[in-house]
Design a protein around this nucleic acid. Structure first.
Length: 136
DNA sequence: GCCAACGTTGGC
DNA sequence: GCCAACGTTGGC
């Protein structure tokens, strides 16, 4: 199964909110074709990292896809789709952007090479390494 | 607060 | 269909 990374500004929607919500939540608001296309590729049960951009710049936890891509309820155009996700668990030790940049084996991460893409693929190797760095 | 990178828009 | 102008994102 593929792995992913979801970026959010914590001031807009934080990991804490996702975690305390407890129920699936639409990952709405994406208005970028590349990010939308990544969500269309997602399968039920696939997992992704939840990353805090801007203020914190670190991976906070893991989420799971619980609904396939469907029209974004906040969009006026049905071309914009999103998946639903729920929190799985926090990383015991959040993995910072600094730590990711310092790790040679993560130099090909999309997070580093295309930091603006809000929904990104993560390779199996990157996934395993970051889980380890995060104390899982 | 600045600026680089990127995506989108719109004139031609 | 190209490309300049513009707006937004996000790291620093």
């Amino acid at each position: 199964m593929a792995h992913w990374l979801f970026k959010s500004e914590p001031a807009t929607w934080s990991w804490h909110q996702q975690l305390s919500k407890g129920v699936p939540e639409e990952w709405h608001g994406v208005r970028n074709y590349a990010a939308r296309n990544n969500m269309r590729l997602m399968q039920l049960g696939e997992e992704g990292f939840f990353y805090h951009s801007v203020q914190e710049k670190q991976i906070m936890g893991i989420v799971r896809v619980v609904a396939l891509a469907h029209p974004d309820s906040t969009a006026d155009n049905p071309t914009w789709e999103c998946v639903d996700i729920e929190a799985v668990c926090p990383l015991p030790r959040p993995v910072t952007l600094v730590a990711i940049k310092r790790e040679e084996r993560l130099r090909d991460m999309v997070l580093i090479n295309n930091s603006r893409l809000s929904v990104q693929p993560v390779t199996d190797g990157q996934w395993a390494l970051i889980c380890e760095m995060g104390g899982l």
